[in-house]
Simulated scan of single mutants.
Amino acid sequence: MDTEQTQALQAAVRPERGLLLIVDDDEINCAILENLFAPYYDTDTAENGRAGLERVLERQDDLCAILLDVMMPEMDGIQVLRCLKEYGLLEKIPVFLITAEASGEVMKEAYALGVMDVIGKPIIPYMVLRRVQSVVELFQARERLSNVVELQQADLLAQAKQIIELNKGMIEALAAAIEFRSEESGDHVRRIHDITTYLLTHTPLGDGLSPIEIKQIALGSIMHDVGKIAVPDAILNKPGKLTPEEFEVMKSHTVQGARLLEQIPQLRENGAYPYAWDIARHHHERWDGRGYPDGLKGDEISLAAQIVSLADVYDALSCKRVYKDAFPREKVLEMIRSGDCGSFNPRLLECFFQVEGELAKLYQHPCKED
């Protein structure tokens, strides 16, 4: 925990003096109570129930307790209690009735509303002081504990976020290392991540998915080509057309990628793992069943794998590769629309073309050989 967090924690547990509000139309009673509590709390007074309620609403964040008379002009103590109950303040601020009218009905309704205690007049100073202080200390301790818990939760969330970012960084580094083997750059996997995220957050494709699920799918997309680590350099970086035998080796990167992910125990504990495994194995499946390695067809292919498949094709066409130059944007869209690069889910294509104008901004600067 750093210095700033430590100071915040110390502030959270430090006892506060607090403001005690006395609501009583009897000036003598107010003076007695002020004199009694002044050494321990800041004090304020209100001469009737209505004025007291206004003061509570103005200073509610500063109040540590309210001493409330019952019989008062404008608005009596029970009416004030009802209003405080309606505003939800009785759970936050302890209220004490101090009254000579401590009848059974008054006490019953007061306790039902949520008053902490009913103290009869004439008051006995040391008893009133002790009863009020005990409850105030309890409320303050509860508030301090709540603040400490909130700070600790914030600290834990910050640590969890760091771990998530570290995991993401490690995954990106591994994926980028594989891209470099094929003379590509880490920009490719970042664009696949960003395209996947955008399609899931700005089109109906993401309907029904939580923000966490979308993040996990996008993180899984980074690992789509991890199996290329098992493909020989001579095939991976061949500038010309692959032979049928070489193409079979290249196609194996899907199965090899899923197999590699299975062998990383730490990754299997990550929520992104099921998506990463599925995407690595199935991002070359096609809607018409003519893809590989499993020949899946239609909705047999997961939405995550379908999206990454389209993102991968879009990126490959838009950028220079070892075996080809980048195509102009119009040509890229024509090839995807006509099915020159394989068939895709019509609904996926519809959503893609709706937002492609935004996705194209990722390619405003010419792609290098990524």
Results as ranks from 00 to 15, higher is better:
V13W: 12
T197A: 11
G18I: 02
A100Q: 10
F327G: 00
D42E: 12
R142I: 08
N237Y: 03
L310N: 00
I171G: 00
E143M: 07
I22W: 02
A31L: 15
C83S: 15
A102D: 15
Q5Y: 11
L151H: 14
L359E: 01
G342H: 02
D207Y: 09
G206K: 02
L199Y: 02
I264R: 05
M1C: 10
P265Y: 08
R144S: 09
K161A: 11
Y126C: 03
M335Y: 15
L90R: 01
E47N: 08
R131P: 01
E245R: 12
C367T: 06
L57P: 04
L81K: 02
E262N: 12
D312W: 03
K361M: 14
P232W: 12
R17P: 04
F37Y: 06
D117E: 15
N35G: 13
K161T: 08
R130G: 10
I123L: 15
E4C: 09
M71P: 00
A38T: 12
Y40L: 08
Y323I: 12
Q79V: 05
R14I: 01
R82P: 00
S134K: 10
I222H: 04
T43H: 07
V313E: 11
I195Q: 04
G77Y: 03
I214K: 14
A51C: 06
H224F: 11
E246Y: 13
E183D: 06
L348Q: 02
Y323G: 08
G257I: 04
I235V: 13
Q79P: 00
I217R: 02
D44Y: 07
L20F: 07
F353A: 03
C367L: 09
L9V: 03
C341I: 08
I279P: 00
D312F: 06
F344S: 03
D207G: 08
D44S: 14
D76S: 06
D24A: 09
E172I: 13
Y275N: 09
G291Q: 01
L317E: 07
A280N: 00
M170G: 11
K121S: 10
V332N: 00
G120M: 14
L138E: 14
I195S: 02
F352W: 07
A51R: 12
E356F: 05
Q364E: 14
L19H: 11
P122A: 08
M170W: 13
D155V: 11
I124W: 03
L19A: 07
G220N: 01
A276N: 04
D315F: 01
Q266G: 14
P244F: 04
M72V: 10
D155R: 10
S146E: 15
L151D: 05
I98T: 04
